[in-house]
Design a protein around this nucleic acid. Structure first.
Lengths: 340, 340
DNA sequence: ATGAAAGCGCTAACAC
DNA sequence: GTGTTAGCGCTTTCAT
């Protein structure tokens, strides 16, 4: 069975002794066809191993049944899990998923959006990206290409799904406050992207609730290597008064913090409490296990797909903003601040 | 700029005052076109915001510039990292990446291959999957659709990339043997998939080199939840004589083992040594850090893409089998067996 | 150097 | 109920 022998609907029609129009109708069970021909044609198609050419169908029907998805890093577990779930749901609905890495670079994002657009994807799911250009996505969406944002805002009346990062950070901070901590260090990889901003806001909100003014010296928000985070953690611990707790926003921050603390023989939670927003294997399995604020990646992926599918089948024309709740998971890494 | 206004080459031609044939030639700089018209046409295209329709091009050129990639689990870090790197390289070459989850289920794999084929992907990259059906992929490949296997064999003369799992397990085992361990427990998630088989073979090979017959009771190879692995680990530790070291094949096995050992107050490496094939955050950051055999996911992804691109541009017609080397990383989790 | 026209594989509108 | 035909947007002969 070589490429040469790729069968077209024409072959099927000939084999079944009907016209190609009839063959098409029979295959798609559309319009009026006699049951007899349906059988005849199906059998012919089967025997020839006919596979309709999705490209030709796309050209004709103006729909590719392909969704594009853009994230900064396909290998980031928080994205990978979402992609996995989204693909699953889309697959059920007959859609395929085209993915792209933006590396958090605006030009690359532009390039990919352009590429996907030329590829005529039926819809676009976009994760957060550097200095988000709301206008472009909004234009696309109103221009007829459904766009669903994931932790990304792009206009007042657009559809999107958001993890409740603000509440996540708020609850995490409040938990630490309840334990008696007042000097809580915050490590974030970015204050630019929407999730980062929201989390910092949640942190400050929780402090404000207790009438505590956030100490800028306790907040470190720039993207950096794990090694750098480790030394950041140490530098924070050498402050006087030193922070009694670390709130880590993201895996890299957690990893760096743990590394730094460990290098200096600081013990969790006896010497310092640690809490992470975003649950991972590392948090679950570290000894001691790290308390975390988690959310359901599967749910996020599913809902993202669902949102898209509803837009696509027209059952939902109103833009919808979905907020995904988070859960605080208390483990072993937090305790009341020690007396120093 | 609504969908209605999507510009075609016809619009460009009209705006530039040339025929569509000429417009096409000018845009693609193909055939003979005067420099003047190239300018004229380009300008018109620019002004209209013309984007060539990739679907129409695909139909005409019989190439979609899309590669399909199938893995059991898009969110598995070992796949996610590879996908990220592969996408990056393919993106450079103007290809897009369609991904699919097989969930390690043969029917789903079939379905996706079929889907991708109808979508006319230019090539297919397939990871390992349940009871691998060599014939089907080989047929596809000889049928004109380039197929690159990733840790997957599908015929004697097909291209593929393999991580050297056998050597990885061999070296890990040998390291433990060198420390004086003889009763080494092996935890694997699967003995069916190619990587699992190879690893077990490597383990047995290393034992054989020392004239040690593998004890079947020490080998646990079935997919299972982390909790189950934990109890497996404990049950192994209650054997007499007990194993003095654990060789964990994969993250889940490592996580379960650590969990189990920890629950029972067993200390690493004092009471038992632990080593993992496949490096992860968890292994790197656990306390104590876990010695591991690692390989470069970026390299794997790149090479996969490279292999595909070479097949595609015809610069490589001979099938090639690439073996990716692994590195043993000694950390804190292994010690000589204690005297019990 | 450029225009006209065929055709990639398919579906849908229109005849009969 | 079935056949014929136009046309989706593009590239590529083939004339000129």
């Amino acid at each position: 069975m070589t490429d040469r022998s790729r069968k077209t609907i024409k072959d099927v029609a000939r084999a079944a002794g009907v016209s190609i129009g009839t063959a098409s109708r029979a295959l798609n069970r559309t319009g009026r066809v006699s049951e007899a021909t349906v059988i005849k044609v199906s059998k012919a198609a089967q025997q020839l191993g006919y596979q309709p050419d999705a490209i030709a169908q796309s050209l004709r029907l103006k729909s590719t049944k392909v969704i594009g998805m853009l994230v900064t890093d396909l290998s980031n577990p928080f994205f990978a899990g979402v992609i996995r779930a989204a693909e699953k749901r889309l697959q059920q609905a007959g859609y395929a998923l085209l993915v792209g890495n933006t590396d958090n670079e605006k030009p690359r994002e532009r390039f990919l959006i352009d590429l996907f657009q030329r590829r005529r994807v039926d819809g676009l799911i976009v994760g957060p990206c550097e200095s988000e250009d709301a206008g472009m996505l909004a234009d696309l969406d109103t221009g007829g290409l459904p766009v669903i944002g994931y932790d990304r805002d792009f206009g007042s009346d657009q559809s999107g799904l958001h993890v409740d990062h603000r509440r996540a950070a708020f609850e995490a901070t409040r938990h630490l406050l309840n334990l008696g901590h007042t000097r809580i260090a915050l490590l974030s990889s970015s204050s630019q992207l929407s999730p980062g901003r929201e989390r910092i806001a949640g942190y400050e909100e929780a402090l404000a609730e207790r009438g505590i003014a956030p100490d800028p010296a306790l907040i470190r928000a720039h993207k950096s290597s794990m090694e750098f985070v480790a030394s950041e953690a140490l530098s924070l611990m050498s402050m006087r008064p030193a922070p009694t707790a670390f709130l880590c926003l993201g895996t890299r921050m957690l990893a760096g913090t743990l590394q730094g603390l460990r290098q200096n023989g600081l013990r969790v939670p006896q010497d310092v409490s640690v809490l992470t927003v975003g649950d991972t294997d590392l948090a679950r399995l570290y000894a001691p296990s790290i308390s975390a604020v988690a959310w359901d990646l599967d749910l996020v992926g599913q809902m993202l797909a669902e949102l898209m599918l509803r837009r696509l089948d027209g059952s939902e024309t109103e833009p919808r903003r979905i907020m995904i709740p988070t859960q605080f998971i208390d483990r072993e890494s937090c305790a009341a601040p020690g007396k120093t």
